[in-house]
Design a protein around this nucleic acid. Sequence first.
RNA 1: GGGCGCGUAGCUCAGUGGGAGAGCACUCGCCUUACAAGCGAGGGGUCGUAGGUUCGAAACCUACCGCGCCCA
Length: 879
Amino acid sequence: MTEATDTRTPDSRPTGALSAQYQPGEVEQRRYEQWVSRGYFQADETSDKPPFAIVLPPPNVTGSLHVGHALDHTIQDALSRLKRMQGFEVLWLPGMDHAGIATQNVVERQLAAQKLSRHDLGREKFVEQVWKWKAESGGAILGQMKRLGDSVDWSRERFTMDEGLSRAVQTIFKRLYDDELIYRANRIINWCPRCLTALSDIEVDHSDDDGELVSIRYGDGDNAIVVATTRAETMLGDTAVAVHPDDERYKHLVGTEVELPLTGRRIPIVADEHVDPSFGTGAVKVTPAHDPNDFEIGQRHDLPSITIMDERAVVTVPGPFEGLDRYEARPAVVAALREQGRIVAEKRPYVHSVGHCSRCKTTVEPRLSLQWFVNTTPLAQAAGDAVRDGRVRIEPPELAKRYFAWVDNMHDWCISRQLWWGHRIPVWYGPNGEIVCVGPDEEPPSGEGWKQDEDVLDTWFSSGLWPFSTMGWPDRTATLAKFYPTSVLVTGYDILFFWVARMMMFGLYAMDGVQPFNVVNLHGMVRDGHGKKMSKSFGNVVDPLDWIERYGADATRFTLARGANPGSDVPISEEWCQGSRNFANKLWNATRFALMNGATVDGDLPAPSELSTIDKWILSRLQHVVGEVDEQFAAYEYAKVCDTLYHFAWDDVCDWYLELSKPVLAGTGAEAARTRRVLGHVLDQLLRLLHPVMPFVTEELWTVLTGGETVVRAAWPAVDAALIDDAAEEELAALQKVVTEVRRFRSDQGLKPSQRVSAALTGLGTAGIDTHESLIRSLARLDAPAEGFTATATLAITGGVTVDLDTRGTIDVAAERARLEKDRAAAEKEAAQCRGKLGNEAFVGKAPEHVVAKIKDRLATAEADLERIAAALEALPTA
RNA sequence: GGGCGCGUAGCUCAGUGGGAGAGCACUCGCCUUACAAGCGAGGGGUCGUAGGUUCGAAACCUACCGCGCCCA
């Protein structure tokens, strides 16, 4: 407060000092620095306020802010700011992920430019190099988050490799190990022959690729059996042929042996339930060391596993194929088989699903190797139960199905990676085969022959601890006590399995069964204006920083939030962002107008009894809007929040309230003073309501309007039921109807806005708007009838108002007739529809009372309209 | 192959049993002293197709067609 630069008193507020257009560039950086330096975003664990906590999904240290982050952060920031205003002690905790493979790849590429590999440096030097890279070029995204306006608590920034989090990693590893939930085993895993590391199932992306399907005959004569494969080269490692046990074609062969071509080995023919008899010939080759399904078959039938390739997918079997990589070996093997007449059929291209490394796109090679695994069975059970029993709510609920499908069928999780950048597995191997898992406060065994495991842990192992490791776990910190479990986790549905499920498993396990978050709010992927995926090759990628630069952070945020319907993808386009920018400018000018006209927030709001209908109406509308926005935020309906506020601000406030208030504001009396107060109040509240989504422009305007220090800490508007006024709303609706109808007539008649028209208004009393005649005249640009007034046209408006206009003989009869005919057609259709229903005994008998009454009402209105329109048509001069 | 979701205006999407909506785009008229990043008015949809349930279906059920996503 002391460093506030705004020393203006309410009385000396600049009234016309705002420029005619909002310039985000002049506001954003200044405001952000102010917010941070004043400590608005710092969470206090000793506070008495109820807690609200969000942990930021940690972006990769290698990353920069893309539009997906912008959406994710906009939502989190909106929730954080909302809750701050609602009186919660808010913690939004930022940080970064060390991103094992991704980061190691970056530094390895740099080394490669100097013709060096990580092995030239050695492990220690290489890791040092990565840290150096991190210090110099990592974390660009953190600065970019400030541009977006993220209200994170920077004093609590964490990194998955920092000391505290590494301690958390070691702690949980040890616990899981001691509970026998972590084990080491020789299993077939996904292997990237380029990254030279194991991958978990979800680090593999599948795509339909062109391949070839080759049918090979094993054995000869009666004993022959034909197998089909897309991976002919792996036949060198076959240890069986499998058929379905019920397959009549092969019954006689089960239990016999066949010679494996090119090798001379004899392999058995086994029967296995998992063979699909309808695929190919119904017989499949079994290569346990190079195919996960074959590995399973191998286990069931006790088959040997023969590894035929090394870690780079180069054939190691002695013989003619030795030294060929898998893509060279494939045609070579096929050629050799063809030479022997064993190729029965070939199909190419043959489209089939192929797994790729999610980091480098290299085709994954299933590989049998010794790795560390987490036994996920009990953890996944708990993770599923927490959602099933309602402790954790997934929003939108439809996506819970996907979650269950995953956690209820989870495979054990391969957590070891043959990388250097990451948390090293805290296991030491002794000279006599001892295996010791070392906890965080224990000394690793020393002495001759002891060696630590070379591998590091999967990146997701440490990010799975994020909700509590960042708060000081395993220590029982005040932060954890205050802010765990976190309130909401906001993230894209694409990492539901990668990350959310793992946090659930680890959180429940480490925190004595307490869930890591109460709500998982999943949003979609950002797409272009035609719903297409953004991709560099397609050239439709939006850079949020570019939009922030050109249209402002608020416009960028509003565009994203406005597209964020629960769980579905978010299309955005530059045109829409321009629209959002225009909206920010609209708010700017509305406030500018208000200030020029003496809007104030000083003193109490006048009692409703003292207010004009117009003022009562806008206050009533405001109450509805506050209620709706509350409900929509509570339901994570960000698109609806934006839509509600957009229409209230633009339609109700700007197009109607400000216009209707102009005549009043021109005056100086008590009525004008009251309207100035209401206007100030409405804008004050509106700016508060918009602040979560549009923090910068609202801060700038609100502080000028109210003289307050900041809207960041302003109280969230509450519904005041006493201000809801149905009568005022009905009255305004009737007024708007009359004004709109006259405008429509003028437009149809080609009357320019500058052209005054005299008119006589009758029936205003019937419609209950007789007090608004002068307002109607000013908005519809109608003069009072003067001497010699002659009506040349008559507008009969629903509700009983009649407007007789003197267009000085310039009436376009044809246009007017067309207009009336159109109205008549609409009214007739309406009347016919209503009569139809009311004439239907089944409808009258079975439909609820209020529905029938409503239809009767509609019919009465339509019939009255028809009568008036007929009269007006009658009165038209014949052409 | 298994599962999930979607088809509503030119585009992107709301609308889940009782008068077809929004934003943008489009047409016409306006520099009306907060805003041309604006104001006023307007055109435009047999709600994918075919059945069914119901007094009543864009909405509920079934089938089909088309599209997308996840998993294998």
